[in-house]
């Protein structure tokens, strides 16, 4: 459940609804709005803070981090997650690193073909 909340917040930031410096709702206000327990929202905020996506100032609230290329970073983080998942599936299938890279290259070639 906290992963879903992280995802929703990331998306709002990525599409620019919540720009850098934007003040996030308080934990209790967001919990009431999405009807999810306070502890779950708190965990999502902590995680996003650890990733550097938001900053929390004691007694002032939480804000979207002032990093210009944040949405790019978020998209790259998302890509890394997909790649990690692919690596896991590859190892279950007993593929070597070379075989897995070949598959990725094939996927890139297929994409280029579609675009041309």
């Amino acid at each position: 459940m906290y992963l879903q909340i992280i995802e929703q917040i990331r998306r709002r930031i990525a599409v620019g609804d919540w720009p850098p410096g934007y003040e996030l709702p308080s934990i209790r206000a967001l919990a009431a709005a999405v009807q999810v327990s306070v502890i779950t929202v708190k965990r999502a905020y902590l995680e996003l803070e650890r990733e550097g996506v938001i900053v929390t100032r004691q007694g002032k609230g939480s804000f979207v981090a002032e990093s210009a290329n944040l949405s790019t970073q978020l998209r790259q983080a998302e890509l890394d997650e997909h790649l990690a998942a692919a690596a896991r599936v590859g190892s279950v299938l007993g593929m070597s690193a070379g075989e897995l890279s070949d598959r990725l290259r094939a996927a890139i070639a297929a994409r280029d073909e579609k675009q041309s």
Binding site: M1, R28, A29, A31, A32, Q35, V36, S37, V38, I39
Partner: peptide, 30 residues
């Protein structure tokens, strides 16, 4: 559930609720 979540916007208040519906508990319990 929305009304119960509204109650705990106030940090001095609290709720104990019993249920055998684990979905409700999973959603709003701390």
């Amino acid at each position: 559930l929305a009304e119960l979540m509204d109650v705990v916007r106030d940090e001095r208040r609290g709720i104990l609720f019993s249920s055998h519906n684990t979905q409700d508990v999973e959603q709003i319990s701390d």
